[in-house]
Structure formats: structure tokens, C-alpha cells
Design a protein around this nucleic acid. Structure first.
Lengths: 211, 211
DNA sequence: ATCAAATGAATGATTGTTCATTCATTGCAA
DNA sequence: TTGCAATGAATGAACAATCATTCATTTGAT
């Protein structure tokens, strides 16, 4: 959806269904970041959106559905950002890997509010299979691609001691771990520093490609 | 506290204050793991403990305090486990680092329920300074020690291209990232595999010590 | 017998949801 | 253009359900 349309939706008293839904999802992200998931109510979200109480049930039927759609929105946005970056990147596996790592530490993916929401959902995921499924679908394509890229790098660079699947899992884990640092200690961790830490891992693992 | 005392507390109708408190904290961990933080109520916790509704207010005054004390309990337990492992380990920095990494993927730290609770609190930490402070105090000592150990390794092994602070941050991030995998995809990630991924990182970074 | 520990019904506050009403936009006739 | 229904989006007060907390009463250990 165009940003212009969303801004229009926020000013007009009535707006098309899809625009209002996205406006409410964005308000949910702000509310969860500000109040936490357990203090996010229909009232805090509708207030964030500058709309009335009943608006969420009108567009999403229930609070549960609003939350699920918010997670789906984040998941979709991540996938789009990732696929776009991969399309832009060069054909070499090194370029691809560099691009995949880079987007994880730049907007729109690496945004303080969105990270807070990701962790809020992860924190509930053990008791909510629906959340787990949405998260899993995000991971699958991403990880498959990363293993493949690492495998190509291993072959290209004759890194005999490197296991592609292991490194891929390591990079992916390091990324979410650095997101946690960005969330819990924003004073001592920055996006730039996080990217640097990740790149150091690439450099020592694939020295012929990243040094 | 001794385990025997806790078991006694669970059977007796009355028990010393400290035993009941720990019993309730353990019940909280189970409830948060099972129901999530936002569906954890005074009723679910007291039911888990096999006690009555009012018992929590009697021992913790409020729900908020119960949750804070639960986080503190986890934080303390982590610190104790870590310090004990370090005391047991040899004097060489390699032994120390291996020990620090190992405990992160073994009980009692690496337990499915406890991981779920850690992430539940992290997910709320942006909106709750109290949670952030408790988490920060856990990190500080741990990270300081890890940087120091990595620094010693770098000097010992002449790893001129390795920056100790960067590697330390990378290991720490990879650990929490692997915890997330254990939480969200317990079918495809095991503690053994997670430890292996971490050790591969150590091996490639400090080949003279971990190969 | 005493008294701290534990209970669980009662209470007030909060929350998600509903729905009758209000309001703005759109299409159409004059 | 101007006036006027018709449509459906948005509102917000009201409702029912849930929850944390309180406290008079009960229980059991010393």
C-alpha cells in the first residue's frame, strides 16, 4: 500500500477497509512497543490510531485477530525486504550473504518498535501455536536460502573445515541475539555495531570473501 | 534452598515463608511457560502451586511483585550456575570459555520452561524499566568476564585479527539467538545441536585452542 | 490454647465486545 | 451545478466477563 494512501486514511473520517486496517496495525505496533503486549488493550490501540473504541472489532472482529494480523504484517514485510535485497544484490554468493546480513540491521526491519513487537510475540509463542506457525514460515525460506548461499561460498573458497548448515544457523542466531541487545540495551548497542559484529563472523569464517 | 525443603512445603498445609515463596515462583514459571505472560493470572499460578487464590497477595503483596521476583530468581540462578561452573573449570582461558558456553545449553539454565519465561520478560522489557534493570545486571558481570577471557585467548594464541570485545559480543548474541530457536522450533533445534553451532564459532575463531 | 498460615467468597476495577445512533461520502435526479 | 436519498463507515455508551485484591473465617502446628 502507498504511504500517501495511509496518510490520507489518517485524516479522513472514513477510509477504505484496507487502509484502516493497516493504520490499526501500525497503531498496534506502537502500542505494544510502548505499553507491552499485556498492557495493550483495545483502548490503547484505538487511541494510538486516533479512532474510537469499536473500530477494531469493526475491522478485525476480535483483539486476537488484530494481534495475529500484526504479526503477519511484520512477517510479510520482513520477507519482502529480504527478497527485494536479494534481487538487487549481485549474483555472487558473497554479495548475497552480505545483503542478507545488511538488511537485518537497517530500517525498515531493524526498527526499535518493531523489534519490541517481535520479541513480544516470541515471548508468547510457546503458548500460542498460531504465533509459532507465522514465525516458522518466516524462518523457513530465509534459512533455506542462507544455507544454500553458505554452501556455495564453501565450495567457491575451499573452506574445507566449514559446515554450511552450521554457519548458516550461527549467523541467523547471532542476528536475533543482537536484536535482543538492541532491545534491552539500546545505550550500549547500536545497529552499526551489531552489523560489525556479524560481519566479523563472516570475515573469520569466509576470509577469502570478506576481508 | 534445599530441594527437600521445597517438596515438604508442597505437601504441608503450612510452610515457612521462604519455602512458599519459592514454590510460588516455580509455579509462576510453569504458568508463564504454559499460558504465556498475558494469560498468566493469580488463578493460574495458585492453581499450579495447588494453593488458594489469596496466597500470592499474602506472600508477594501484588502480582507485579511476584513477576519481578520470578525474574530475579531466574537471574540469580543463572549467575550462580555461571560462577560455579567457572570455579570448577580449569585456570586456562580456553577451559573457562568452554565452561561458560557449555552451561548455556545444559540444565538448569537451558530448560524449555525457563527459556519461555526469559523471552516473555524480554518481550515486555521495553515498556518495563524494572525488567530491563534486572536483565542488565545479569548481563554485565557475564559479559565483562567473557571479554576478559577472550582477550586472554587472543594474547595467548596470537590471534592478531581477532577483536576480543567483538567476539565476546558475538558469542553472547549467538547464545540468546540459539535459545530463541530452541523456544520457537524445538523440533528442529536441540541443546546438543545449539552447543555444536556455538563451538564451531569458537573453533574457527580460536583454532589453536578449540580444534 | 494460641496464633500464624491459608483459605475462598466478595468487591471493585478493567477489559473485550456489542449495537443503536451519528456522520460523511457517493450516486442520481432536477 | 444543486439538492437529496442511500449507503456503510465510525462512534461511544452500555454490558458481560474476567481479574487482582481484600479480609473475615478456618485450619493446623507449636
Amino acid at each position: 500500500m502507498a504511504k500517501a494512501a495511509l496518510k490520507a486514511a489518517m485524516k479522513k473520517r472514513t477510509a477504505p477497509k484496507e487502509e484502516r486496517q493497516q493504520q490499526l496495525i501500525r497503531a498496534t505496533i506502537r502500542s505494544v512497543a510502548k505499553n507491552g503486549l499485556s498492557d495493550t488493550t483495545m483502548a490503547t490501540v484505538s487511541r494510538q490510531a486516533g479512532l474510537s473504541q469499536g473500530i477494531i472489532n469493526l475491522h478485525f472482529q476480535s483483539k486476537d485477530r488484530l494481534l495475529v494480523e500484526t504479526l503477519r504484517y511484520l512477517s510479510e514485510q520482513y520477507r519482502e525486504t529480504w527478497e527485494r535485497a536479494l534481487a538487487k544484490a549481485g549474483d555472487s554468493p558473497a554479495d548475497k550473504l552480505a545483503a542478507m546480513v545488511a538488511i537485518d540491521f537497517k530500517p525498515p526491519v531493524c526498527d526499535p518498535n518493531k523489534l519490541a513487537v517481535w520479541f513480544a510475540f516470541w515471548g508468547e509463542s510457546k503458548s500460542r501455536p498460531t504465533y509459532r506457525k507465522i514465525c516458522a514460515s518466516r524462518d523457513m525460506a530465509y534459512r533455506a536460502e542462507m544455507v544454500q548461499v553458505c554452501q556455495q561460498l564453501v565450495e567457491e573458497g575451499d573452506y574445507h573445515d566449514v559446515d554450511a548448515a552450521t554457519v548458516a544457523a550461527g549467523i541467523s542466531a547471532m542476528t536475533s541475539g543482537l536484536w535482543l541487545d538492541l532491545l534491552t540495551s539500546p545505550r550500549s548497542m547500536t545497529r552499526e555495531r551489531a552489523l560489525q559484529i556479524c560481519q566479523a563472523y563472516l570475515a573469520i569464517t569466509f576470509p577469502n570473501h570478506f576481508s
